[in-house]
Design a protein around this nucleic acid. Structure first.
Lengths: 215, 215
DNA sequence: AAATAAGTGGACATCGCGTCCGGTTTGCGG
DNA sequence: CCGCAAACCGGACGCGATGTCCACTTATTT
C-alpha cells in the first residue's frame, strides 16, 4: 500500500519514533495528528510485544490498544513485523555505530578474532534485552531481507577477510546463524545464561579465526 | 483430538507411509479405507510441498488434492507441519542410523572433528534433497520440539565431549544453527552451492574441535 | 474562512483454521 | 451370509485475522 509508507518505515528511523517532520525532502511533511497517532501506535505496540507472546500480537490488538482504527494502522505499517522492526531499529543503529567507529575491541583496532567475539557479546546483549521485539520482528525468512542482517553480514565478512579466512561468503551466514532469535530463545528456555552463550560464541570466534591472524 | 492420532504420527514411521497395520499392539488395527486415504494424503502432500511454496501449503489444499474431507485430514494430522515431518522422518531415520552404526567418518571410529564434518556434509545433503519438505516442516520454533533435533543435538554433544571441548551445552545449539532450513535456503538463494556450504561447515568443524583431539 | 489534501476509522469481503456431527463403510460375531 | 457396533468420512459451521475501501473529519494553505 501507498509506496512511501514502506519507504518511511525503512528510512529515517529516529524520525519514525519521534514523529519529527521529514526535513529537506520533497514529500509533504507529516501532519500533526498523524504524528500523534504514530506515537500512540508505537507506544502501544512496544507495550504489547513486551507483555504477551510477541508472535501472537495482531494488527487488531495494536490498533485497539492504540485507540486507532485498522485503516490508520495499515496506512503506515503493512504488518506487525514492520512495527517491531521500527522499534528495534534504534538499538541496532547504535550497535552498528559502535562497530564502525567505537572503541576496540568492538570498533576498529583490535585483532579480528577479538572483534568477532566482541560483536557476538554485543549481539547477545541486544538479543537478551529486546528478545520480545526480536521475536516479533522475525517471523518467517524476513530476517535476511532486513537491512540490519546485511550489515551484520558485511561486518563479519570484513573481519574474516582481514584475518585471511577463505570462504567468507558461506561462513558469514554460518557464523550469524547462532544469533537467530529462535536459536537464542531456545537456549534461554533451556536454562542457559547469556554468559554461557557468550562464552561459547567466543570459543567459536577464536576457533574460526586464529587469535593472532590479521594483525 | 484423539490422542493416539498424534501418537501414530510420531511413532512407527514406515508404517505411517506404508499403511501397514500396527503389529503387536492392543490398539485396534487400522481399517482398510483409512489406510487408503492416508496414502492418498501423503502422496498429495508430497506433491504439493514439492510444487509450490512449502510454507504456503494449507490443510485445505492437501485435503482437496487428496480428494478427502477436512475432517479426515485433521483426524490424523493436526497441521501441515506434522505431515511434512511424517514425510521427512524416513530420511532422517536413515541418517541417524548411519551416525550410530555406519562406517567412519560418519559412524564411530573416526576422530570427532572428522565425524562432525561428515555429519555436516550429510546434513547438507539431506537439506538440499528435501529442502521443500524441510521448509514445510519448520514453521516457527517447532524445530526444537522435534525428536530429530534432540538427536542431532545429542550427537554433537557427544562428539564435543569426546574431543574434550567444554561448554557443549551451549555449543551444540550454536553448531546446529547453521543447519536451520531458512539459513540454508537463504544461502542457496544467494547462489552458494552445496559444496561451498559444506566446505565452510567443515572449516567450522575443524575450527571448533582440534583435528587431533579425542583420539 | 474556504479550499484542498491528508489522514481517519470501521464496515466488508476473504481466507484459513479447527470442530462437530449426520451419514457411510468396514470388519467381526453370529 | 447377515446385521451391528465401531471406526471413519467429509462438508458445513463458527471463529478470528487479514487487508481493502471509502465516506467522513481534520490540518494546513492561501
Amino acid at each position: 500500500m501507498s509506496e512511501w509508507v514502506r519507504v518511511a518505515a525503512m528510512e529515517s528511523r529516529t524520525e519514525l519514533l519521534t514523529g519529527r517532520p521529514v526535513a529537506e525532502t520533497g514529500r509533504p511533511r507529516e501532519r500533526a495528528d498523524a504524528a500523534r497517532n504514530r506515537a500512540k501506535v508505537l507506544a502501544a505496540a512496544a507495550e504489547l510485544f513486551a507483555t504477551r507472546d510477541p508472535r501472537a500480537v495482531t494488527m487488531d490488538d495494536i490498533a485497539k490498544a492504540a485507540g486507532v482504527g485498522r485503516g490508520t494502522l495499515y496506512r503506515r505499517y503493512p504488518d506487525t513485523v514492520s512495527i517491531a522492526q521500527a522499534l528495534l531499529d534504534e538499538h541496532e543503529r547504535e550497535l552498528q555505530e559502535r562497530l564502525l567507529r567505537g572503541d576496540p575491541p568492538l570498533g576498529p583496532g583490535a585483532p579480528p578474532a577479538d572483534r568477532l567475539a566482541a560483536f557476538y557479546a554485543a549481539m547477545v546483549g541486544l538479543l537478551d534485552e529486546h528478545i520480545s521485539l526480536v521475536l516479533g520482528a522475525e517471523q518467517g525468512p524476513l530476517r535476511y531481507a532486513t537491512g540490519a542482517y546485511g550489515f551484520w553480514r558485511a561486518h563479519v565478512r570484513v573481519l574474516l577477510t582481514e584475518a585471511g579466512v577463505p570462504e567468507t561468503e558461506a561462513l558469514a551466514d554460518i557464523l550469524l546463524a547462532p544469533l537467530g532469535p529462535d536459536v537464542y530463545a531456545e537456549q534461554r528456555r533451556r536454562g542457559l545464561t547469556p554468559e554461557q552463550i557468550t562464552a561459547a560464541l567466543a570459543r567459536l570466534a577464536h576457533g574460526i579465526v586464529a587469535r593472532d591472524a590479521g594483525r
